[in-house]
């Protein structure tokens, strides 16, 4: 069971969280103006990263907030968790 550091509540057991898919997939401001390919990419294209991955979690059974996390999918190590709206931190990656 993962130990996930909620940006609001601190480290908490995975049982309290729900996974929310890849992070930083912003809904277009004006979907009507978005072409079919771009809209399709927004809906369906995901990185499925091996290694560092920015993903969303919701502290469903805690503060109920969505937040973002940087996790290495090969080790399950979290490098960072941060509030929605904040940019993806650059950690452990070649800059």
């Amino acid at each position: 069971m993962l130990l996930i550091a909620c940006p609001y509540c601190g480290p908490r057991p995975e049982l309290e969280f729900s996974h929310g898919g890849e992070a930083h997939i912003a809904r277009p401001e004006a979907p009507a103006d978005v072409g079919a390919d771009d809209w399709g990419a927004y809906l369906y294209l995901r990185a499925n990263a091996r290694g560092l991955h920015a993903e969303r979690w919701r502290h469903t059974h805690g503060c109920a907030r969505f937040f973002n996390a940087l996790r290495d999918t090969t080790t399950d190590k979290f490098l960072a968790t941060y509030e929605c709206g904040q940019p993806r931190p650059h950690l452990g990656e070649p800059s």
């Binding site: 929310g20 969303r56 919701r58 469903t60 969505f66 709206g85």
Partner: peptide, 13 residues
Amino acid sequence: LSMMEDYLQTEWP
């Protein structure tokens, strides 16, 4: 409820 919170918190805060 979760979907509504999702849009509210992340798209339309």
